[in-house]
Nucleic acid binder design. Structure first.
Lengths: 233, 233
DNA sequence: TTGAAAAAGTGAAAAACTGCATTTTTTGAT
DNA sequence: ATCAAAAAATGCAGTTTTTCACTTTTTCAA
């Protein structure tokens, strides 16, 4: 299921290096860094980082789509955001020594590289530009989460469902036509409402000619109107 | 209204130094840092940092209570969180060169020190421990905002009002009895519902013997039950 | 391939919530 | 102290949302 990479694979040169630190770390540092890297596969539904646990690694997500899931004391779930490869998971834990405040769970089959957090910290402490880049990513993530929440916090379900469809189309599937990786229940946990409400709302959008929906297949056919629904709430 | 401090005042030794960087910066650096510091007063309602604007300073809040306010395209307001002195405002802008994504507005008369952001950056680049401390504060703030949002995002108004009362009591006023700095309208903007709903809910809590309310004076008389309402949503 | 379990869909009643019109109370400036 | 404006409070009609009980469809493993 998982494979230890004793040598640096070609993938690695495309990954952390490219997306975050660019020219800022040396080839030697890079080798040291990736000697302990472990590649791992996750099936849909598998937990990549578990809420309430401490972790000592980041994950560079090479492939797949994940949800950031918060489970409350009553067992109710809330999806904070959806993210897709390539990205780095677990940045929230770089500065805070606390346990994870949410789980990260695969909603499509995923492939990721485990990165030793202590080694990364060591490297960051010796290279302030590298540190700055890593931390920019970390706060950027939080910033996006907050913007995400703002858009959901004071709209009614129509507007929230529209927002989610727009988000998925623009940021995750990069197309007006896509196969939803979320169940209706999960969609509801993202929108913060009941699954019946999601079903009704999606049907209404379909009836109104804004989207075409057939099971998990969704096509946005009237983007302009969808954006209007998003704005009007 | 505002006073330029040409010499380092006693206040300063209690402030940034104490709360964030502890022993990590030298006396010389500290002096350099505070030579340009400007002290400023804000009346209730005054804007300390304005959404959509760029800023080149942080504010060390010495005294007072502020709201983090987001205004959407329809002019509707959402309060992200409430914060009180002593704290540092504007940390969200350290890494991101963007405009402010929300306003920070005084809801009690405030006193603050303006800190030059460029000087701070200069200092941080030369001292990685100082940098780390500043950034820890920054991400800590985001982390708290997210926790705040989580607690609001999947509860009904009863639970949300309970959460806000608990938050204000534990984190802002530090007492079971307090004089609310928020109007009912603002309370509603914090809870993400109508002001009428807030009025009804507070009255109901009063009738149920959970709180006593008279105008802006609130006393939590049954903390246990309030926590139960918070949990049950 | 087939049967059981999970997910999707339906409709209607109950509950929660908003928006409005209106009255009462509080606040703050002169 | 007085007046005008702002804020708080009230009740209700109408809308939105949840909940529940149920049927249909899809998925997946033996």
């Amino acid at each position: 299921m998982d494979t230890v990479i004793s040598e640096i694979s070609d993938d690695c040169f495309e990954c952390l290096f490219k997306t975050t630190c660019n020219q800022s770390i040396s080839q030697d540092d890079f080798s040291f860094f990736f000697q302990s890297t472990v590649q791992q596969n996750y099936k849909r539904g598998e937990i990549i980082l578990k809420q309430g646990m401490k972790t000592n690694h980041l994950i560079y997500l090479l492939k797949g789509i994940v949800k950031f899931n918060y489970e409350d004391e009553n067992g109710k779930n809330l999806i904070l955001t959806i993210s897709n490869a390539p990205t780095i998971l677990g940045l929230a834990n770089i500065l805070n020594e606390d346990v994870n405040i949410f789980s990260i769970i695969a909603i499509e089959d995923c492939k990721g590289c485990l990165i030793d957090l202590n080694k990364l910290k060591l490297l960051a402490m010796n290279d302030r530009f590298f540190m700055l880049n890593i931390l920019k990513m970390s706060t950027g993530l939080f910033r996006n989460s907050i913007l995400n929440f703002i858009s959901l916090a004071h709209k009614q379900v129509n507007g929230r469902v529209a927002d989610i469809l727009l988000y998925l189309s623009k940021n995750i599937y990069l197309s007006n036509t896509f196969v939803l990786s979320l169940s209706r229940q999960e969609f509801a946990e993202f929108a913060g409402c009941s699954k019946e409400n999601i079903i009704h709302t999606l049907r209404k959008f379909d009836a109104d000619g804004i989207i075409t929906i057939s099971g998990k297949n969704i096509e946005i056919i009237d983007m302009e109107r969808l954006q209007k629904v998003s704005k009007s709430g």
